[in-house]
Design a protein around this nucleic acid. Structure first.
Lengths: 212, 212, 212, 212
DNA sequence: TATGAATGAGCTTTCATTCAT
DNA sequence: GATGAATGAAAGCTCATTCAT
């Protein structure tokens, strides 16, 4: 039975280390983070980390992978279920992505780390793109194409940059990264307004009443 | 006259140091940058940096200030000249900001550093917001208000988040930070499409022909 | 058993470091001592010192404590055994203290460091006073009081400054600190003459023969 | 006339530097003192010090010399005027030396520096001994010899260590160095009791009444 | 598996000293 | 005479990494 505990222990260790690493890397950045602090936070000692990971870089890489996976999965999870119209699908999908990109503190902080360390870990960026951004953009494009074909969506060149639909979420994300809790934002309202902007644009729509 | 060389030299030193610091901080990040490398790049020795700056943090702060100033100035510079309609002004202003935010490599990299070190230098972020972001958002809001009043712009709630208009530029900026030269982007096209999206939205506009 | 070597090693390290620190601090003084030299002398490397001590100041403090302890213990050790007369006790006690203060090179050098760094480490001085000087003075005063009461000692005001009895030892100590080996002193003789002075004074004693 | 000011200025500079050096060396010790601080205190800049002195060591040496000279002079000054009895002379002379050694803060602090840096500047110690301690001890010995010859002083072996008469002053000096202002001492009283001890000793004197 | 003592390269910072002006 | 910019050799301290136990 003690074996069992130890075995379970062993299986959990890497995850615990990465969890601790996430906290430390987020707080201090890659270079300023001390593996000793990571170890302390994980309730182990420095040496143990080297049993599970090759070095500090690999801890970082593994951590980013670990904390990106839920993102990938969630992004994929969004079933093609709702066979509604394109605008309806886009609204729902964007709402879903908003929640991931801007609301979830973990995704947000991972994002900070990716931007900060993009030069040091280019492969990690590419990996992240392939796993997360790529599929999302692909699905956005698909929906845009379908919608355009059906006339539900205005024929435009947005197909060239479907990621533009994510810009508002990105903007919110960055704001929160920069100002932390110093400038609170009403995220629900932000989303509503952003979607309204994306769908209807700034110019007045013929036959539309004035006033919001 | 010979004295002039020295005096000129002295006056230029801080600037040269900050120039070198920019390159190094951008390449390695704050923590991983060695002042010795900064000094070497500036053609001086380590000790000299400490003659002009208190410590590494102050070098960083001074560098960000130095490289942010042109941004502030450019952003302010945009004269209220064009007394055209709001949509025309917005298009021109956004184009102008696009060029700053996404095209100018220096602004772009300063941005990376701000995101990366937002936790370590919160005052710097606030300063940057007050000097650059604040005025820009203010001007955007003004234009949106004017346009809405005149009916040139659709009455919407965007007044609550005028910075949404910058989201596409931000998105482009981040893309370039992440992928550097690995994923070239046609910035002009990106801008055109983004503006079209912002102005007209995704939904088909009654009475509009199909196709881009 | 092999483990024993390591454990024993670990237990001995701090002592070895302090031993080396003593030599270096004595030779160079606090500020001019390099921890790297301390490490080398202890047969280890710089970093190891920081495993056992917080910083240079703490090495110094720990060293003084370590090398003062024997003093405390020796001073206390002097049993109240000899229940002889006060003059006899004082002679024996002073002889004992002489040996500690002036003869023992370690005590002597610790003393130099305390004087030199009194401004930087005032708490250390106070600690030393409480542990070593205080008890000694207390015992001297006690003996002086007893002797005065019994008429063995001339009634005088020396009770106000019992430490005056240590002045000769102190004088010898300082001489040795100043001149090192450049001015050899016959310590035994110095002691005899000092005690004679303390006991009998300079003025001729009625009924005493002339000549030493 | 401007010449005159400058000339006077120049003549005073070294003294001003040494004055400043004294303060700094006393406060921080030799090694921890920065010549830049000395310069600032003297109202000049670092480089100027090197115009008047070869290096930091020479500044220290010159400072000790400068601040020892009054000691030498004072010690010599004490005229052979008072052609009184030996005990009277000794009391007066010791009182005089007490005032120098223990009361004058400058002498006191010079003494700390000599003890602290005795290893680094042995020649300075020897110089000081020759100029100050030597003459004083010589005069003490002379007086002791005279007094003994005249029967005014008890024949003893104190002639071998006349400096023992200075031990109480030394003791007071060290106490003040160690405790600064943390343990105030009544110096007048200390002196009285010390002289009483030196003259009369601890043992009861036949035919003397009890009580101080 | 896990520990933690030990290493040593490297970092920021300091400061005596120099020297062109 | 005086300045102060510049140097460069440390020094204190840190920390990723190793490895005997």
């Amino acid at each position: 039975m003690v074996e069992g505990v130890r075995a379970r222990r062993k299986a959990e260790r890497p995850g615990e280390i990465l969890e601790a690493a996430f906290e430390e890397f987020v707080q201090k950045g890659y270079s300023a983070t001390r593996l000793e602090d990571v170890a302390a936070r994980a309730g182990i000692t420095k040496g143990t980390i080297y049993f599970y990971f090759e070095n500090k870089e690999q801890v970082f890489v593994a951590m980013v992978r670990e904390f990106s996976r839920p993102l990938h999965e969630q992004a994929e999870e969004f079933a093609t279920s709702s066979s509604s119209t394109a605008p309806e699908f886009l609204r729902a999908y964007l709402c879903y992505l908003y929640r991931i990109l801007a609301t979830d503190p973990r995704s947000r902080e991972i994002f900070r780390l990716l931007i900060a360390e993009a030069t040091r870990f280019p492969e990690l960026i590419d990996e992240h793109h392939q796993n997360f951004i790529g599929p999302v953009v692909k699905r956005l494009r698909q929906s845009l194409e379908d919608g355009t074909a059906k006339g539900e969506i205005r024929a435009s060149s947005i197909l060239e940059f479907p990621e533009l639909l994510l810009a508002p979420a990105l903007s919110l994300n960055i704001s929160m990264l920069l100002f932390s809790d110093r400038r609170p934002i009403d995220m629900e309202r932000h989303f509503e307004i952003a979607v309204d902007l994306l769908l209807n644009g700034l110019l007045p729509r013929p036959g539309e009443e004035a006033g919001p």
